[in-house]
Design a protein around this nucleic acid. Structure first.
Lengths: 342, 342
DNA sequence: TTGAAAGCGCTAACAG
DNA sequence: CTGTTAGCGCTTTCAA
């Protein structure tokens, strides 16, 4: 009984393909072709259909598209609470995906919601690929083998997992080189706790120290992600008879917290002790902080991740499972010459 | 040619309702009834179906559910980069939604992706309600009138928008009372910039000062969300001949940055100047910070938001468009007695 | 280049 | 209590 145009009031119903087809005087299939921008329609028809769609304010129904397509053109993304860096990656993922005709669906890792639940909720949407910004663990991701997976930020050894990351090894080399060139030898590393990224930077630190001939001077303090752990680490050092010559922190938060603690204890930075961070976040640029920090390109990482995910979806051959970008070191005011007796 | 069971290899295809039905020897409709846990099946059938589903590892296809249902049972959530507080709200939203049989779909506000795009991408999934954790603007949300909207965190005057927030007015009253009781009079507020929350706290500050008889002592410095703005504000104050007696900051970040700046300039906190923050975030609890801060209950806000969204979806009558929780003040080490001459 | 028709996997009346 | 039957709005062969 409900014909297409039953006059007066049809306030709710959204505009469908059929409406556009009727309005343009063509079949639904043709409208579908035009909307998806695939070959199979004359320029003139295309124009007419587009105008009709425009006029009616047509937007494709994602649910129906999802169900009808064999590929969803959906890329699942799990992410955890993280700083500006991860948000910048997210920003890059959105634009890169859109450029390629894909859509992102997000799932957050929260205190009460681990990887399993985060991924399962996405799974029911039948996404084509999964990009993981967390959880930062060395374990192989669940879902491996079932779907293309791109891990952004740390090394995963499973052969079915693609990786886009910035070299933590190289970052550490830059930092240690910078410090040793300024005479530092007793360089302590405050790590980031349990995660895979922390592991990588710790290993990078040890390697860089060794190749600088400072293998006997390595020292790693257990830290974490937040300022809390930074101030704890600083306290540990302050209780000792002699401060190290330099501290290489896992991230900017740790570095800043330590900086504060040292200053409060009456030390000068960098005259008495040098400090470096990681991420080159806003906090590192604060006028009263001016932290020397390692920087990585979030948008580039995002673009590579999306490109790789799509390559896997489309079964395009790729050269390297793991794509590693090179970081830079931004030198600011918290690193200086070591004292003569160091 | 592809019949249901063509033997040997069917490696890809996911288990569908039909598979479960066949396995359990009942109709698809019955399986649907059992899975959705709605009345219309005997206990025995229910058991048999559940077992079959379990055995086959069946998971409903969200795309198909979405398309077939009149209500999607999907709650859209837009959120921006924000601190721990917003992540805690997100955590609460997930669990509250799940408890009520709904699912969250997220859309992030990033530097290149504003409210319009964030909402549009969700819209195509036909969500039943929208929860907004940002953007923190006084403007009426787009989508208003088309769908139930719950704003979490700030006041919106549009009659069609539900609000769940913690009273910024009351928070300010707690802070100002606390300070005036300790003899402070020259109390400066460093605000949070342009947002609606900042507006509310600024207004709250002015009102609280006035009702404390300090209407002539009000002073608002423009601030922001990050430590950067805090240190700028501190510098402004330090350049003047005399520091205020106390600073009420928009959030913990600002407060901490100012604290640092004052200490570096040789002042003692709270002996020379008192400082308060907002959010009671991790940074406020740092052993070397111990910031007096206003605290709000993220999980409770989340629960209320979900409850309200669902009430609107189901057209349940509700009492009050705006639900306002009361904050608490956590007094720590950054607030003390005013100096005698203040 | 265009159109007809058969699904995608599920929900929701409605009959039995 | 159970099964049959239409769709949901789109994509995608396949013929015309």
């Amino acid at each position: 009984m409900t014909s297409a145009n039953d006059g007066a009031k049809t306030p709710k119903r959204r505009v469908t393909l059929a409406d556009v087809a009727a309005h343009a005087g063509v079949s639904r299939a043709l409208v579908s072709i035009v909307i998806r921008d695939v070959p199979g329609a004359s320029a003139e028809t295309r124009k007419r259909v587009m105008e009709a769609a425009e006029e009616l304010g047509y937007r494709p129904d994602r649910r129906a598209q999802l169900l009808a397509r064999q590929h969803s053109r959906l890329i699942g993304t799990v992410f955890g609470m993280a700083g500006t860096f991860h948000f910048d990656v997210l920003d890059g993922l959105y634009t890169a995906a859109e450029d390629r005709g894909y859509e992102l669906i997000l799932s957050a890792l929260t205190p009460n919601r681990g990887e399993r639940r985060a991924v399962e909720s996405l799974q029911d949407f039948r996404f084509d690929a999964l990009i993981m910004l967390g959880p930062d663990t060395t374990k192989t991701p669940l879902m491996v083998g079932k779907i293309p997976i791109v891990v952004v930020g740390w090394h995963v050894s499973h052969p079915a997992v693609d990786v886009v990351r910035t070299s933590d090894e190289e970052g550490m080399r830059l930092v240690i080189d910078h410090l040793t060139q300024r005479g530092h030898r007793r360089i302590v590393h405050v790590d980031g706790g349990e995660g895979a990224v922390s592991d990588a930077r710790r290993t990078g630190y040890l390697a860089a120290m060794r190749s600088a001939g400072l293998g006997d001077h390595t020292r790693v303090l257990s830290g974490g992600l937040t300022q809390l752990e930074g101030s704890t680490a600083a306290r540990t050092l302050l209780e000792e008879s002699r401060l190290p010559s330099a501290v290489v922190a896992f991230n900017d938060e740790i570095a800043v917290a330590m900086l504060e603690a040292f200053v409060q204890a009456g030390y000068r930075v960098p005259q008495d002790i040098s400090i470096t961070g990681w991420d080159n976040s806003q906090i590192a640029r604060l006028p009263h902080v001016r932290l020397t920090s390692v920087t990585q390109d979030a948008h580039e990482m995002a673009r590579l991740a999306i490109d790789r995910a799509i390559a896997r979806i489309e079964a395009t051959p790729v050269a390297d499972r793991e794509q590693v970008l090179m970081p830079d070191l931004v030198v600011r005011a918290t690193t200086g010459l070591a004292k003569a007796d160091d």
